[in-house]
């Protein structure tokens, strides 16, 4: 069972906050972490390897600093680290990102399973996993909260719109996992030390055979960011003193009535 786990290094969104005096986002000093959903994917991969044998390769596309995320994955049980790094990959949207990851999967494989987190916490798009599956013409099984392998088939329980759906597909397949699938283990100290002395296998655009350069990076991205802006909160917070609960509640109701807001569903 050879498994590829795609991970993303993301800013720890819990550490990002607003500077109320300037109304800007404070991002300096925000630590980078492995996207939490990707840690669940890695844990799932390591457990499958423990059951079925094989190897776990962890891959990321990003700047050299993303090595740190790969090393964390190594400490958590990955056998191999692969870094896709090239200035020409920069500015990629989900399409261009998934294309490079898919091309790398072809070059490094064959893999029986490709695992991704359900989504990344910085963009929340949930697009890269399904797009990798499409580039590789593989079945996609999203939002997996349970995975089992039987011979050449994979079965997952999918958390989908308030249902649990049991899905089955032939290997190889692309899966995305939710956080309820497992509780990622803590990094192994020995492996962490080992990771710090190990360099990932690094690939640039020139190292990936048959790469279509028109599909990578900013210029290969069909979507562009036109602008980003801090939303203007026109609403003002009405703070109500709750020392005397009945009074606070009647103040709330009079404010809601003025704004024509009903506390009852239509």
């Amino acid at each position: 069972m050879n498994i590829l786990v795609c991970v993303k290094q993301v800013p720890d969104t819990a550490e990002i906050h607003m500077d109320p005096s300037t109304n800007t986002l404070v991002r300096t000093g925000v630590p980078s972490i492995v996207n939490p959903f990707d840690k669940n994917a890695l844990e799932a991969a390591v457990r499958l390897r423990e059951q079925h044998g094989g190897s776990v390769t962890t891959i990321t596309m990003g700047p050299l600093q993303a090595t740190q995320a790969l090393r964390e994955c190594y400490a958590l049980g990955a056998d191999r680290m692969v870094l896709l790094t090239d200035r020409r990959f920069g500015g990629a949207d989900t399409y261009a990102t998934s294309y490079v990851l898919a091309q790398a999967a072809k070059a490094l494989g064959p893999f029986d399973l490709i695992l991704c987190g359900k989504q990344a916490i910085d963009g929340d798009t949930a697009q890269v996993g399904p797009m990798i599956a499409e580039h590789l013409h593989l079945p996609q099984l999203t939002y997996a909260c349970e995975i089992s392998i039987e011979d050449t088939t994979v079965q997952v329980v999918q958390e989908c719109d308030n249902d649990h759906i049991c899905l089955r597909a032939q290997l190889p397949a692309v899966l995305t996992v939710t956080k309820s699938i497992n509780e990622p283990r803590l990094p192994n100290v020995m492996r962490r030390l080992q990771a710090n002395r190990t360099e990932p296998d690094t690939f640039t655009a020139d190292d990936l055979p048959g790469l279509d350069f028109s599909c990578i990076g900013l210029s290969g991205s069909p979507t562009k960011v036109r602008k980003t802006f801090i939303p203007v909160h026109e609403k003002q917070t009405h703070i109500i003193d709750g020392t005397i609960p009945a009074d606070a509640v009647s103040v709330l109701f009079s404010l809601l009535d003025t704004a024509k807001i009903s506390l009852t569903a239509r």
Partner: peptide, 23 residues
Amino acid sequence: ATDIGRDLSPRLACRLKTGLTAD
């Protein structure tokens, strides 16, 4: 942007080689 919509739309956009903005 339901679970089904988020499963379907990236696969479709990728096949159409067009851009998709989420959520």
